[in-house]
């Protein structure tokens, strides 16, 4: 995965060269690897803990799907995603997205990346594409690490969906990839918010913290029933809706709603980031 993204066929156009250099810088950083390793540790910890515990978890105990893990190792990835969606994934995405512009500004490398106003727009696109690529890498890391450790420690067989129907291993792999795609899309809105905040400051830690705090605030607001008119507008509202892909037949409604909502966030905060970044005085 990460390596695939780096060796994307580069056209001579400067945009693609910039993108491939951005991706290779991002995925060569030790911090990126440390975060991906921490994410991969989540399913491994879950699987090892369940394997070592003397009594298998009862139905309804612990995080959702935990009781299914002992019957079918393929659920480890899904359980790990449920666990990491509220905090770990937004945390890592916030770090990457918050660092995009502010990181370059604090290092003093931003002015060298910019030639003219067109260069700024291109840089924004490239930076956002890098953050989006990290979203995909982070989700796939959790999912793949979960599938691998689950297959190593537990039996693998037909998967029971939420509706009580069972599907074969091949179809369950397709469903797992769909879930990973859903979670990746879910994080795109947060990445756009991080990109915008990153244009506001030259202190990358501040932008990272603000992005992560926003993701927590959105989830807290989402749990207050007094604000239910606001809920469909919160970027975290559909985060756990990936369960709709584990029903029989698949319910695509939440996938569509989620994609539309995230697209709106990307457009709004992309436009804000554009407004801020092209008018920003980066040379002083």
């Amino acid at each position: 995965m990460p390596s695939d993204l780096v060796v994307r066929p580069a056209r001579p156009a400067a945009g693609w060269a910039l993108l491939s250099s951005e991706l290779s810088v991002l995925f060569r950083r030790r911090r990126t690897w440390a975060m991906l390793a921490a994410l991969a540790a989540i399913p491994i910890l879950i699987a090892v803990a369940v394997r070592l515990s003397s009594s298998p978890p009862a139905a309804g105990e612990g995080p959702p799907f935990l009781d299914r893990v002992t019957q079918n190792g393929l659920f480890v990835g899904i359980t790990a995603l449920v666990v990491s969606i509220p905090l770990f994934l937004p945390l890592t995405v916030g770090v990457v997205a918050g660092d995009t512009i502010a990181g370059e500004a604090s290092l003093g490398t931003l002015r060298y990346l910019l030639v003219g106003p067109a260069g700024r727009v291109r840089l924004l696109f490239v930076k956002y594409a890098g953050a989006a690529a990290f979203c995909l890498a982070a989700t796939m890391t959790v999912m793949l690490a979960g599938a691998l450790i689950g297959a190593a420690l537990f039996p693998v067989g037909p998967v029971t969906l939420l509706s009580g129907d069972t599907v074969a291993v091949a179809e369950s792999a397709v469903r797992a990839l769909l879930v990973a795609a859903y979670v990746t899309v879910s994080l795109l809105g947060l990445s756009a918010i991080g990109l915008f905040i990153s244009t506001l400051t030259e202190v990358p830690v501040g932008a990272m913290a603000a992005t992560i705090v926003l993701s927590v605030v959105a989830q807290v607001l989402d749990s207050l029933s007094q604000l239910d008119w606001l809920h469909p507008w919160l970027f975290s509202h559909y985060w756990l809706g990936f369960a709709d892909l584990l029903r029989q037949p698949i319910s695509w409604a939440s996938f569509g709603d989620n994609a539309a909502l995230q697209a709106a966030y990307v457009l709004v905060f992309g436009a804000l980031a554009y407004g801020r970044f092209v008018t920003k005085d980066v040379l002083t």
Binding site: L267, V268, G270, A271, L272, Y274, G275, R276, V278, T279
Partner: peptide, 9 residues
Amino acid sequence: RWLPALVVP
């Protein structure tokens, strides 16, 4: 340049 930030929302 701030126009898109107004128009899009």
